[in-house]
């Protein structure tokens, strides 16, 4: 089986729980994405990674790995992570409804919004404890931390070093999909206030 030359790099990225997104500004990553977009390559790589117990998953304009066998993270940890993500997505959607794949933002603007939007400030305070930050951390730093986390998890990337602007990657759709997949029974929905 002839695997593409970049297989090593693809593995390196994906095996760390990262995503390969088509809208990355990093030409290197978009090149990897192009390779994966080729259905022939995809099939070869799928087989290849399958034999070492990884499933190469194709999402909406992003690729990621999942395990063939039981995940190494226990349910408790997954729940904790999922809840953290819900908090973060909720925070960004409060910051701007349009926050989604392709959206451009900067931590400075988030900090400004925090200072003028009471709801957002409230959520930022909530995130402080989730992200294990000190109560008195200034909001600018909180915004920086949250954005940093988003980047570290592979859902955003820096777009302009000078302007300190960031871009949401298509992997953000993974979070949206996860949230969409959670079902709230009708009777529970009625309990939730508007």
């Amino acid at each position: 089986m002839n695997v593409p030359r970049q297989t090593g790099e693809i593995f390196e990225l994906l095996s760390k729980g990262q995503f390969i997104c088509s809208n990355s500004s990093d030409s290197h990553i978009s090149k990897l994405c192009e390779i994966l977009d080729d259905s022939e390559n995809f099939e070869i790589l799928y087989e290849y990674f399958y034999s070492i117990n990884f499933i190469l998953e194709k999402g909406d304009e992003y690729y990621n790995f999942s395990r063939k066998n039981e995940s190494k993270a226990d349910l408790e940890r997954k729940l904790e992570t999922a809840c953290k993500w819900i908090d973060i997505v909720d925070f960004f959607k409060t910051f701007d409804n349009a926050f989604a794949s392709g959206y451009s933002f900067s931590p400075a603007r988030i900090a400004v919004e925090i200072s003028v939007q009471a709801v957002l400030k409230n959520k930022a305070d909530g995130l402080k404890s989730v992200l294990k930050m000190d109560e008195k951390t200034p909001y600018q730093e909180v915004a920086n931390k949250i954005v940093e986390l988003l980047c570290k998890e592979g859902f955003a990337e820096i777009e302009n070093e000078i302007l300190k602007s960031f871009k949401v990657l298509s992997s953000f759709k993974y979070l949206e999909e996860l949230i969409n997949n959670i079902n709230i029974p009708e009777e529970v929905k009625h309990e939730i206030p508007e």
Partner: peptide, 10 residues
């Protein structure tokens, strides 16, 4: 879901 995104970074 057994996605690697949930796991600690190896």
């Amino acid at each position: 879901t057994h996605s690697l995104a949930f796991e600690a970074k190896p």
